[in-house]
């Protein structure tokens, strides 16, 4: 039933796997001789984190964090699940599914800076700079995407589509997503 809402494919499974592997190699090189603490932001980044860490060639620690959501009616963002690992003097790498407005990552940086890590950097599966209005440093990103709504590989729409192995748009009756993808030289029917 839910498949009917999908639009065009944006990144295929081989594209994703190849790019995740490349980024993992970058990270391994940059953190050579260190043991970074990877903090995966649940729930969206879970799939990306698993694939990314499989390709790392350096020792690392892995932990998870989840944040309260605006739509749940909280007045201020809270940490639903905090990390168990100590962050002081650690090289922290935040792993996100998508960075768009920069609001969440900015919050994470503010929280983590208070825990005295040796360094903090961010790695994201998708980076959508067109939607950014808070500038945040993104050290690693697998793909930059235009301002379109996508699902799959951890990204959901109302809880659906997270488990798709590729990234697609949702069906967009206005045709805008299709047009943007064409300009990118992308797009393929599911």
């Amino acid at each position: 039933m839910i498949e009917s809402k999908l639009g065009e494919r944006v990144f295929s499974t081989p594209d994703i796997q190849q790019r995740v592997q490349e980024v993992a190699h970058h990270i391994s090189a940059d953190y050579s001789g260190k043991r970074p603490l990877l903090i995966s932001i649940l729930r969206g980044a879970a799939y990306f984190t698993m694939d990314l860490t499989r390709h790392l060639t350096i020792p690392f620690d892995l932990d998870f964090m989840s944040l309260s959501s605006f739509k749940t009616g909280f007045k201020k963002i809270e940490i639903d699940k905090d990390v168990s690992e100590e962050m002081a003097n650690r090289d922290v790498l935040i792993v996100e599914d998508i960075i768009d407005t920069g609001l969440t990552l900015n919050f994470l940086f503010r929280v983590m800076e208070k825990r005295f890590p040796a360094s903090i950097a961010a790695c994201t599966f998708l980076d959508c700079p067109e939607r950014r209005f808070i500038e945040v440093p993104v050290k690693y990103s697998c793909f930059k995407i235009p301002d379109i709504f996508v699902v799959g590989y951890g990204l959901d729409f109302r809880g659906d589509y997270r488990n798709l192995m590729e990234v697609s748009t949702l069906f967009d009756p206005s045709g805008r997503s299709t047009q943007i993808l064409k300009q990118m030289g992308k797009g393929g029917t599911k």
């Binding site: 605006f70 909280f74 007045k75 201020k76 963002i77 609001l103 969440t104 900015n106 919050f107 503010r110 808070i134």
Partner: peptide
């Protein structure tokens, strides 16, 4: 403004 408040901006 509520969104900004939510994120402590």
């Amino acid at each position: 403004a509520r969104i900004l408040d939510f994120y402590g901006i």
